[in-house]
Simulated assay, not measured.
Amino acid sequence: MNPVPEPVRVDDHGPIRVIRVDRPDRRNALDLATKSALVSALRAAEADERVGAVVLAGADRYFVAGTDIEELARLSVADHLRLRTGEVFDVVERLEKPTIAAVEGFALGGGCELAIACDLVVAGESARFGQPEIRVGLVPGAGGLSRLVRAAGRHRALRFVLTGDQVGAAEAYGLGIVSEVVPDGQALSHAVTLAERIFAFSPLSVTLIRQAARAAENEPLTGAIETERRSFQAMFGTRDHHEGLRAFLDRREPRFTGE
């Protein structure tokens, strides 16, 4: 009897950890086992000092085509609370290391929510995004609607969510939920290269920039600007700041240490 394949695969590209959903027979749909495996892989990446950034991807020709509907149909309200079915999205949102989604094919429902919970989204030009929950009598439940309203505005977001229509990568870029569109088949390699570029900068700067960006999303403007200002000031006492200035003046590449 052949063993059941793991729903998540992990590969390291130097300091970049690639976490890949691997259920191609289900178009990488998220069931409870896959969500649990993703949470474990994400927390392991966060705890590993060798990992500088995380790239989320899907196996075969898909990112994640949604939540596993067959399993979803069997869950009660109590099951959702007891099993913490939305935990994986919170873990991605709060991960202390930069996250990039590499999207090829479908990113629908929970797959779309998983992608846009990341810091950056790189999409192949044929990728498709959607929140089709309304078509099965549901609403987005893991941030898809809320993040889309913040990125695109209420009117454009509701056109997307109230119909359950899919949009292509170019339109998703226009809506503000995709960072870059690349040729098909290159989303993962481009995301890893982008993660490597980010890793080369001061980890202190990266952390503070991500925190300030979250504040800009979630706080009133005056509070967000104050967070940004304090982050700017905090860097002045660091070795990385002095190294960056010295390297600029010496016309060489900086050697950041995170101090």
Rank of each mutant, 00 (worst) to 15 (best):
I198M: 13
E226T: 09
P203S: 05
R147E: 00
V167C: 13
E243Y: 07
E171A: 12
R214I: 02
G185M: 08
D184S: 14
R156G: 00
T222F: 11
Y173H: 15
L221V: 15
R214P: 02
A172R: 14
Q166E: 15
A151Y: 05
P140R: 04
F160I: 10
F248V: 04
G244P: 06
G141Y: 01
L175H: 09
F236H: 14
I225N: 05
E226Y: 03
V182G: 05
Q233R: 12
P203Q: 09
H155R: 10
D184W: 03
S205K: 08
D184Y: 06
R252Y: 01
Q186Y: 09
S205C: 13
L249A: 08
Q166T: 15
R210N: 03
A216T: 08
F248E: 09
G244K: 08
G223L: 11
E226D: 14
F199L: 07
F232M: 14
G176F: 03
A234S: 13
L145S: 00
Y173Q: 15
F199Y: 15
A247Q: 05
E219A: 08
G143H: 00
A224V: 09
D184H: 05
A151G: 01
T222E: 15
G176E: 04
T163W: 06
A195C: 04
H241I: 05
E228W: 12
G153Y: 04
H242D: 10
R150P: 00
S146H: 06
R229G: 04
R197M: 14
E226A: 13
T227I: 14
V161L: 06
A170T: 15
T193I: 01
G223Q: 12
P183K: 03
A234H: 02
D240A: 08
D240T: 12
Q233H: 08
R156S: 02
S189C: 06
L208W: 01
Q233C: 05
E228T: 15
V161D: 09
Q233T: 12
G141H: 01
D184C: 06
L204Y: 06
I198T: 07
R230Y: 00
L194N: 03
A200C: 06
A247C: 11
A191F: 03
Q186H: 13
V192Q: 02
R214V: 01
G223R: 12
A216P: 04
G168W: 12
L188F: 02
D250L: 09
S146V: 11
L158M: 15
E226C: 04
Q233K: 05
R251W: 00
G185W: 03
F236G: 10
T227K: 09
P220H: 07
G174E: 15
E171Y: 10
